[in-house]
Design a protein around this nucleic acid. Sequence first.
DNA 1: GTGAAAGCGCTAACAC
DNA 2: GTGTTAGCGCTTTCAC
Lengths: 336, 336
Amino acid sequence: LRRATITQVAARAGVSGATVSRVLNGYPFVNDEVRTRVLAAAEELDYRPDAVARSMRTGESRAIGFVVSDLANPLFSAIAAGADEILHSSGYSLVLASSAGDPEREAEAIAALGQRRVDALILSIADERAPGLAERLRTFRSVVLVDRQLRGSRADVVHSEHRLGMEAAVAHLRALGHADIGLIAGSQAQLGSRARVRAFRNALDGAVDQRLVRTGELSRETGYLAAQELLALDEPPSALIAGNNQLFAGVVAAVHDLRLRVPDDLSLVACDDSDLARLHEPPIDVVDRDPYELGRAAAQLVLARLAEPESPPRRTVLPTRFEARASSTAPAERVR
Amino acid sequence: LRRATITQVAARAGVSGATVSRVLNGYPFVNDEVRTRVLAAAEELDYRPDAVARSMRTGESRAIGFVVSDLANPLFSAIAAGADEILHSSGYSLVLASSAGDPEREAEAIAALGQRRVDALILSIADERAPGLAERLRTFRSVVLVDRQLRGSRADVVHSEHRLGMEAAVAHLRALGHADIGLIAGSQAQLGSRARVRAFRNALDGAVDQRLVRTGELSRETGYLAAQELLALDEPPSALIAGNNQLFAGVVAAVHDLRLRVPDDLSLVACDDSDLARLHEPPIDVVDRDPYELGRAAAQLVLARLAEPESPPRRTVLPTRFEARASSTAPAERVR
DNA sequence: GTGAAAGCGCTAACAC
DNA sequence: GTGTTAGCGCTTTCAC
């Protein structure tokens, strides 16, 4: 079944293609009677404008690219769902690419989206330090970074205010009497992870034991191994903060395997909420944020930029907040 | 920065646009020296073929649409990630739309993807019974349903073999002595949920207590409320099966709130694995499947269909398997 | 083995 | 207010 073209609608309505286009695009100065005829003809032929041809002519694709380091991570898929919500309602489509953490795939995805002439690019990539990235982004009319940073780029950004949430978490633990707090955080190639580590150090104002801070890939395995290592130290931390949901899952697995009780043997805090944290027994303290809102905010920056291409770079900062549940108490007396 | 066009490359290489196109598309009968010159010119200008223009001419967009009922559900995002993996490596892009369970948004998304002329459509929609759906899908060159069914459609499908996994789960519970097993499953507007309910009934060969089977929206809230109701019955079930990951989260919340111990007071089985099920204390028995593989299989059906448009509809069935962990034991003696 | 020309479906400039 | 025309960047006959 071939689809109707504008020319066919025009023929049926007894007008020119230009007039059909005008009617369909809401151009006001069209004879009412003609408008009705055109609309009827379009209806009868079930005419749908061809987005490809329209893009070809206007230079706008009404598609937004979104490159994510790991779509299967509920955090990123929630961000994508939030972005889609806004974009869909403005008539844009989301072209999603997941790199599975591979910087090469990220580069390919960005190139592919460029060839597709997406109107904008939203980026939550694994490696914000990929060489030449900033230049390659210059061909895009709008770039929005989500919890990422890029030197030499005029991109708009959505950031989470990681500092306050992390500070509150650390303050909570210190108030309970924890002196040795461990942090297991993600790759330093992403702003979000760096911000959490920095906030952690700040909150401990210099009193930070370097051995208790581990960074690595954002994966369950990394979380598991790092927790095993930290808890095997001669003087293990009495509290542990997991820097993201996947690391947290690994930490929980390690804690189970070591038969440690939370919070009696170890206090625990997770960054980014999850079913696991909420429904863990006991429920886990979290530094939480709203991932949908992150996605919505990114989409809004995109729309604002497309509406006003020359405005100065914008930056949206969304809050994180610490929620104490039941996974931390005063540390047990240490046996010496 | 405007991008180079094929005409510019042609000028630089001293040939016609047609020849550039031939070189870039691997047409074999081109003079070697000319080929080298064209490649060099393309390289120097950093030429990237314009996908929109190419689509315009060839009628192929090299984009695949994917409509999901809830992208934020880790199951669907894992499926999408699996599909993207295959499609990306074949040069296709994924255009994703999440309907948040709203049939109207699903219809809109499908229409939008049609206008974009996606080469194929993958569907994991909330409402497979939307009126007129089958006809609207006929305009697509390839449609693949993931765990969905559509009468009157020649779509290819990927199904999970829900029956064996569910039967194994029920058999396991019955062997332990459970006579009253409750099931909390999803909407009957989706094949997956229907299949699980049917498998459950079959496994109990008619000995099904209708009051112990609840179906509804696939949400935490539904799971929570249904579990509360079932467990408040005069003769509550001694074991509960949750039909999906979100329902399961609700069930766990209800079980916690009721202060029931698993498995002593209640045996529990979840459908589709999750961190929550794996790391729950005790670990929860699951009817598991590989969601990435579901996505990969869908993508492969798409590619096969595009390669052979006239072949008969294909059907890929992927296994589910029951994994007993530690969330079920023999039911406690009932006090009469 | 290569070039010239047509045209995919649409919109925007320009004419009337 | 409406029609005519050109052209977005590419691929694909058809010549030669």
